[in-house]
Write a protein that binds this DNA or RNA. Structure first.
Length: 353
DNA sequence: TCTGGGGTCCTAGGACCC
DNA sequence: TCTGGGGTCCTAGGACCC
């Protein structure tokens, strides 16, 4: 692409989709997550509308806690197919504007203007804010959804700028104003740096973005490895990837996991659930013509102790019964002597030639 | 009022071979 | 018998993101 990278992020995506099909919910605190019943445990908030966030409801919060904070909230079950359909519509709208689109999850995309239109004519130069405005207008017209747009020279700058644009605005962040805008912020303000990495950086005396930008890259490589180490310093400088890949994403794996409302203690139950999960994931990948190379099983006990084991199949498989049998054999390698809270099956997929 | 589900990528260490 | 590297494959776990 030429020039700018834009990052498009849909506002309160799941809640917005729900309000679209139930307009009477507009302006009300809407909380999407689990099966929508906040009286049941072991479910969390997927997305809260801004009205609900005003009550302190956040993503990842247990639904029961959300219900306490926001007793008049409208609790709705998570409806994946609806969100996938809405997401597809948004991405199609972005492409219809002649933009290069790299999809980044349900509710995000990096986009850029190609150097020439599809008929080969060079495009007129345009200020990125103008492009951003057209994106917001068209996405709203076509889908009824609002989005924030960040503008930068790299993906990191654009994505960071989006944080300043929410909700519904446009913001630009460049190499030039990066130090003044980001320098004093904690390193966790950077995409890809979480609490763990921040704690390890703090051991080196690095707490702010400016300190990270000035850190010794040899020391970072030594402490964090040859890939992550150099990336950290680059992130401190606001640099990094500035290319867009508009090929459709090819999934590396697919998984299904389930937290049980009541812990499982009976081995026959555990086997039955693992078999069921394995067959379900296998069916969904075989429906897309993919082959399975590895089968992984995840077990979380009542104490939240979580372990994963994985086995490579002798040859790539398209046989659901073989996958289920492999999952059960992997399960056999666990010591199942504690009540089980969660079971999961993940399949690693062969990359298409 | 304990802690979802679905992903991706990276690193470390052991096994094994030359 | 001991010792050394390098390289690849495999699994487990860590970390992060939406």
């Amino acid at each position: 692409v030429s020039g700018w990278i834009l990052h498009v992020d849909l506002d309160q995506f799941l809640a917005a989709v729900e309000v679209l099909r139930r307009p009477e919910l507009a302006g009300r605190p809407v909380i999407v997550g689990g099966d929508g019943d906040p009286s049941r445990p072991r479910q969390v908030v997927a997305t809260a509308s801004y009205e609900a966030r005003a009550f302190g409801v956040r993503s990842g919060m247990p639904l029961r806690q959300a219900a306490r904070r926001c007793p008049d909230g409208v609790f709705l079950p998570s409806d994946r197919p609806a969100y996938e359909a809405a997401s597809d519509e948004v991405m199609a709208t972005l492409r219809s504007l002649g933009l290069v689109v790299e999809v980044w999850g349900w509710d995000e995309a990096f986009v850029g203007r190609p150097p020439a239109s599809s008929d080969g004519r060079p495009l007129e130069p345009e200020e990125p804010e103008e492009t951003a405005g057209r994106i917001q207008q068209r996405v709203f017209e076509e889908t009824g959804l609002r989005c924030a747009v960040g503008i930068g020279e790299t993906k990191l700058q654009a994505k960071t700028a989006t944080g300043f644009a929410k909700p519904g605005g446009i913001a630009r962040l460049t190499r030039r104003d990066w130090p003044a805008t980001m320098g004093d912020r904690p390193v966790t303000a950077l995409w890809g740096i979480g609490a763990r990495t921040a704690a390890r950086l703090a051991d080196l005396g690095v707490r702010t973005v400016a300190q990270l930008a000035a850190a010794d890259h040899v020391e970072l490589a030594h402490r964090f490895g040859p890939t992550i180490g150099p990336y950290l310093k680059l992130a401190g400088l606001g640099g990094g990837d500035d290319t867009l890949v508009d090929e459709p994403h090819v999934a590396r794996g697919r998984s299904r996991e389930e937290t049980f409302e009541q812990d499982l203690t009976d081995r026959a139950d555990i086997d039955a659930h693992v078999g069921r999960l394995a067959r379900a994931v296998a069916a969904s990948v075989f429906a897309e013509g993919r082959r399975v190379t590895h089968v992984a099983v995840k077990v979380r006990t009542a104490t939240f102790f979580t372990r994963t084991r994985i086995r490579k199949l002798p040859a790539p498989s398209t046989d659901a019964e073989e996958v289920a049998a492999a999952a059960l054999s992997v399960l056999d390698r666990f010591e199942l002597d504690r009540p089980v809270r969660l079971l999961g099956v993940r399949l690693v997929l062969e990359l298409p030639a």
